[in-house]
């Protein structure tokens, strides 16, 4: 299926905060109560519409354990958006946000849109991090913020789509250099300003198949 733009995302955050479950809910609209842990990186994709334009989200779900960090970092650089996830029932996952953020900022392009996500709002009775704390952290570091539940799907669509909207706006404002694929944005084949016979290096690329 063709698209106007392709945005590359990464999902980062401590292990067990629900990164893979958020991705599964967004791409497959389902929830796995006991999701197998992610080793290395996994991958998902979905098409969305913004401003009447088809946008393909290519999402890289990374392992949360510290020891994998050296491996997963290489995926930061080519991302236009990042979902930084913590678990509202585990304070340690919130306190580690600073490290994650530093890491992301250091290894990604400076325009990357970062969405902070407090996940597992379905476990309200076990809440350990107040919503206001998440909001304050986001404000302080210039991030967008949402609380979600991968289980009930609350705000999951919004989290992914709002991030895309922010990226889209930046493109409109000319903040992103869309001619540089390293920014995590690719222009769809029929939208490419280059001619179809342009030399290699042109932006146009075949849209991925169903899965990617």
């Amino acid at each position: 299926m063709s698209y106007a733009y392709l945005f590359k995302y990464i999902i980062i955050g401590d292990t067990g905060v629900g990164k893979s479950c958020l991705l599964l809910q967004f791409t497959d609209k389902r929830f796995q109560p006991v999701h197998d842990l992610t080793i290395g990186v996994e991958f998902g994709a979905r098409m969305i519409t913004i401003d009447g334009k088809q946008i393909k989200l290519q999402i890289w779900d990374t392992a949360g354990q510290e020891s994998f960090r050296s491996i997963t970092r290489s995926y930061y650089r080519g991302a236009a958006g990042a979902l930084l996830v913590y678990d509202i029932t585990r304070r340690d996952t919130f306190t580690h946000l600073t490290t994650w953020l530093e890491d992301a900022r250091q290894h990604s392009n400076s325009n990357m849109v970062i969405m902070l996500i407090g996940n597992k709002t379905d476990l309200e009775s076990r809440r350990d991090v107040k919503k206001e704390e998440g909001e304050a952290f986001a404000r302080e570091h210039g991030l967008i913020f949402m609380e979600t539940s991968a289980k009930t799907a609350a705000n999951v669509e919004e989290a992914f789509i709002n991030t895309a909207k922010e990226i889209y706006e930046k493109i409109q404002e000319g903040v992103f250099d869309i001619n540089n694929e390293a920014n995590g944005i690719k222009i769809g084949p029929q939208h490419s300003p280059s001619s179809p016979h342009a030399p290699s290096g042109s932006l146009g690329q075949q849209a991925g198949g169903g899965c990617c």
Partner: peptide
């Protein structure tokens, strides 16, 4: 497969 990182990884 399409010679693309995501496609080949998948």
């Amino acid at each position: 497969c399409e010679c693309d990182m995501a496609m080949v990884h998948h």
